[in-house]
């Protein structure tokens, strides 16, 4: 089998595709816009109704889906590189569930109403607690299965506490709110919501980009990588903090959306020479493309109750996860 490295054409192609998807998401909908109307609305001219549609509804929503996909795609690629395992991902490992639990706690206790940045901060704190626990577990239990089981445990634990919160929800309104966090959705996001989460998201991505060059070297094993000049402790710190910040911010924007972080890196890996560092940026872009497209599907499927983005992502992602797990298990055999 030959290994190809098409990282650069892939990256530029995906960047163009991501932009095209965001434009498309702004054009289509119950009131379709022409490209001319979109341009006019973006420039602050034309029909005021169109301006509201673009600036207050479609653009924030498309950008939210894009950024959440970018954060999850990058976090998945980086966690897979750090843990040397193609099944690692914020959703599967329980990071997203812990973040959305923390976000719900912040909403439940009224912290968010009193201090809006409490939402991303709480989600990030939840994500960081989960990533730190996972990296500690990865250092102790050296098998893939043990690590995934820790993730399953974290997810279940967060799910149980979430149910508890739902049981005691003070008003029906906050109950509906919490369901959204658990399921994942980018409906009704405003540019203000974006502005709150984006700084943390970008900070997380920056840390992951710093970690990228050494991720391939870690593929030789932690001790060998250390002998090859990698500062392994610094790498752990970068990936934990980076994926914690990015995933936490993504959850603050959209709740828990699963499986993007596993599907996107899996698809780009063959084109990046199976190098987890080189896969980072293309995975991020493809994650964004997937979620923008999935959210368009959510908007366009006619139904009384709008589908949740997280549900669509899981419907596509969960079977893909099982397929990857089966293939990986066969390749690894006596691990």
């Amino acid at each position: 089998m030959m290994v190809a490295d098409r990282t650069w054409p892939l990256t530029t192609g995906l960047a163009a595709l991501a932009l095209a998807c965001v434009v498309l998401a702004c054009l289509i909908g119950t009131a379709p816009l022409s490209p001319g109307e979109l341009l006019a609305a973006l420039a602050g001219a034309g029909d005021p109704a169109n301006r509201v549609i673009v600036w207050e509804i479609r653009l924030p929503r498309a950008l939210a889906a894009l950024l959440v996909g970018v954060a999850l795609g990058a976090s998945g690629a980086a966690l897979q590189g750090l843990l040397r395992n193609p099944l690692a991902e914020p959703g599967v490992l329980g990071v997203s569930a812990m973040a959305s639990l923390a976000a719900c706690v912040a909403i439940y206790w009224g912290l968010v109403a009193w201090f809006p940045p409490a939402l991303p901060l709480a989600a990030i704190a939840g994500a960081l607690v989960a990533t730190v626990l996972l990296v500690l577990a990865a250092a102790r239990a050296r098998t893939v299965v043990a690590l995934l089981l820790v993730g399953v445990g974290l997810s279940s634990f967060a799910g149980a506490l979430m149910s508890l919160l739902l049981n005691f929800a003070p008003t029906p309104f906050s109950l509906a709110d919490m369901v959204t966090w658990a399921m994942g959705s980018v409906a009704n996001r405003s540019l203000e919501d974006l502005a709150l989460a984006v700084p943390f998201l970008l900070a997380g991505l920056a840390l992951l980009v710093l970690a990228a060059p050494a991720l391939a070297v870690l593929g030789a094993g932690e001790e060998v990588a250390a002998s090859m000049g990698v500062d392994v402790r610094r790498m752990r710190w970068l990936v934990v903090a980076g994926s914690g910040l990015a995933t936490g911010a993504a959850v603050a924007l959209a709740g828990a959306v699963g499986f993007v972080g596993i599907v996107a890196p899996h698809l780009v890996r063959p084109l990046t020479g199976h190098d987890p560092g080189r896969a980072l940026v293309p995975s991020a872009l493809l994650g964004g493309v997937i979620l923008v497209l999935a959210d368009m599907l959510v908007r366009l499927v006619p139904s009384d109750q709008e589908l949740k983005l997280g549900v669509v992502a899981a419907l596509i992602g969960a079977p893909a996860f099982v397929a990857i797990a089966l293939r990986h298990g066969r390749r690894e055999e006596p691990s």
Partner: peptide, 8 residues
């Protein structure tokens, strides 16, 4: 000695 990924 092993690599976790099928590098070239």
């Amino acid at each position: 000695r092993s690599f976790a990924w099928p590098f070239s």
